[in-house]
């Protein structure tokens, strides 16, 4: 350990020398790894956003109950309140219904100006426990005077399908990224060792311990993957910022996780992964040259 600490400066100068010996290969490897890590970050952030949307929808789980005009809405309301799994009910009249839709549609809501009268019907907004949606819908539908019960279960189910798909895709990409990173890193380390074989041989003849000879190569692999991880984070920052601004402008009703939160999470994941893969890739590269 004393030797490593005493020679820290030497090890970093050695990395510089090793990298300079095959500069182009190192640059191309870093670019390739950056794109690979970028792909991984995109999948992670996509998965995170969908998860967030599902949670948001689950928290806001509600059904809309439409009723016939000739019945007292409070009677339906009191019957609904008695059903298990109901958290709250709210009576929405025609004007409020139109205001809600106007807010959701934004500029597109100008289409309502073409109507002579308010096209929206009054309804009862019922907040529910999501896991009981099926029985609640069934019981509410059976109440006399209820014409239509609309739930967002289909949307939720679709989002959950997308989330599962992203998880599966994410797993496949993590495996692909890991394999590609290990191959690229170990290859560049092997190349570095090959180009420095004379020096390595001299150090061995001088009695240098193996860790002293290997450490610069391991550090080179680590530096390469961590640099790639950082570059992928910069790319993700730019792309995600654009996606967020576009989503906020055109799809304001979609709830996104906090930008800083998601970036911090992805930076930690990418750097952790690039460190681990860099270390393993370097060790692979060194091991394969021992034969």
């Amino acid at each position: 350990m004393k030797v490593i600490v005493r020679n820290t400066g030497y090890f970093f100068r050695e990395i510089k020398t090793i990298v300079k010996l095959d500069l182009l290969s190192n640059i191309f490897s870093i670019i390739s790894l950056s794109f690979i890590f970028f792909l991984l970050s995109l999948i992670f952030s996509g998965g995170n956003i969908v998860e967030h949307m599902i949670t948001a929808i689950e928290d806001e789980a509600q059904i809309s109950v439409y009723y016939s005009d000739d019945i007292d809405v409070t009677i339906i309301g009191s019957q609904i309140k008695e059903i298990s799994g109901i958290r709250d009910i709210l009576y929405i009249d025609e004007t409020e219904a139109k205001a809600e839709m106007t807010e959701i549609m934004g500029e597109e809501s100008r289409i309502f100006e073409l109507f002579d009268h308010n096209p929206f019907d009054p309804y009862i907004k019922v907040k529910i426990e999501l896991d009981q949606v099926d029985t609640i819908v069934e019981e509410v539908s059976s109440i006399s005077g209820v014409e239509l019960v609309r739930d967002n279960k289909e949307i939720l189910d679709k989002l959950k399908d997308i989330s599962s798909l992203i998880s599966l895709l994410g797993l496949l990409i993590v495996i692909a990224v890991s394999v590609a990173t290990l191959i690229i890193t170990s290859h560049i380390i092997r190349q570095g060792i090959y180009l420095n074989k004379e020096q390595i041989n001299t150090l061995r003849l001088l009695g240098a311990p193996e860790y002293f000879i290997r450490l610069p190569f391991i550090l080179e692999g680590l530096l390469m993957t961590i640099l790639s991880g950082l570059m992928s984070n910069i790319m993700l920052f730019v792309v995600l910022k654009y996606i967020y601004s576009q989503t906020m402008s055109f799809l304001p009703f979609i709830t996104l996780p906090k930008f800083n939160g998601i970036m911090t999470l992805i930076i930690l994941i990418t750097l952790g992964l690039s460190f681990a893969l860099g270390l393993i890739g370097s060790l692979f590269g060194l091991k394969s040259t021992n034969k």
Binding site: V3, R6, N7, Y10, T17, E198, Q199, N201, T202, L203, L205, L206, G207, A208, P209, F212
Partner: peptide
């Protein structure tokens, strides 16, 4: 414990005289 002087010297190219001399002492 051995100080070898090889026929082809086996110096580390691209390094200074000082760097070459201390390389065998670093560890």
């Amino acid at each position: 414990s051995i100080g070898p002087i090889f026929q082809d010297f086996k110096l580390l190219d691209g390094r200074t005289v000082y760097e070459n001399v201390i390389i065998g002492m670093r560890f």
